[in-house]
Design a protein around this nucleic acid. Structure first.
Lengths: 148, 148
DNA sequence: TATTGTTATACTCTATAACTATA
DNA sequence: TATAGTTATAGAGTATAACAATA
């Protein structure tokens, strides 16, 4: 009923998640960023100034945690806290010049990585990989939605 | 020169790493384990009693860190420290009954996950996915080896 | 009353450096 | 001298709970 093949495929996928994590972490460390902080820079870069509350929701993390992440990013010069224009309870997290540059670099690095990973893959195989990955992603989404 | 397609494929892969991490973490939390501690249980389950030094090398982590991980696993009843049979400096990390049971369960859960992720994928597509993943894994290994 | 972000406290993972007991 | 593991210290990410300011 089950294909022994599938177990090996999952093993390869798990190894990829580890290697991909190592590769990104090494790259981020060079820029003076950690993984969690990078997500903040990435989000603010993509969506513009955000309240810490919005960040907490987007990261699915406690507000307290966001305070810490933003503190770290302020200290290292990637973001600034600015008063929210209309709500005096809230603060806007805004990218500094350095932060904006980092956000651009991250996007470039991401595109470069895509090239490096798939460049020698013929179109046909690349397409097949894409289908398989989408299938796996959809199954994972279902699994996570089920067990609530 | 580059396929815009590739960028989207990488995005899907990155989403999979996140979802896979969430799925496993949720599962481990139920068993009273964390990700790092699970790796220890997994390794000792696969290789038999190990010194903390061997664990540090296998995990690519500092010896101090292993002390902490093993402390946590001893407190929660998954492993025991036993004197090394021949080297009185070293200690053997050994699975308790609970630890051995957890190691077995982890393997079963892994096999079940493989089934769930790939079961509806026809053999042909499953094979194509496997090839693509192996290509990606190999490219990642090369990238990590290059930048030393 | 409800929401935003903070302080207080605590746990886990991680590191380096100094030290003890043994090889 | 070198190795195995610990104590000491520190930083990052995470959480809950209590609280202040504002809506």
């Amino acid at each position: 009923m089950k294909r022994p093949h599938d177990q090996e495929t999952l093993d390869v996928l798990l190894e990829i998640t580890v290697l991909l994590g190592e590769d990104m972490e090494r790259d981020l460390a060079r820029r003076g960023l950690t993984r969690s902080r990078t997500t903040v820079v990435w989000l603010v870069g993509a969506q513009g100034p955000m309240t810490q509350r919005a960040l907490a929701d987007a990261l699915k993390v406690s507000p307290r945690n966001v305070t810490g992440l933003v503190d770290g990013l302020v200290e290292t010069g990637f973001v600034r806290r600015e008063p929210h224009p209309t709500d005096r309870r809230a603060t806007h997290v805004v990218l500094t010049d350095r932060g904006a540059e980092a956000a651009r670099d991250l996007q470039l690095a991401n595109a470069e990585l895509a090239g490096q990973l798939f460049e020698n893959l013929p179109d046909r195989r690349s397409q097949a990989l894409r289908w398989g990955l989408e299938h796996v992603r959809d199954r994972l989404r279902e699994l996570l939605a089920e067990e609530t």
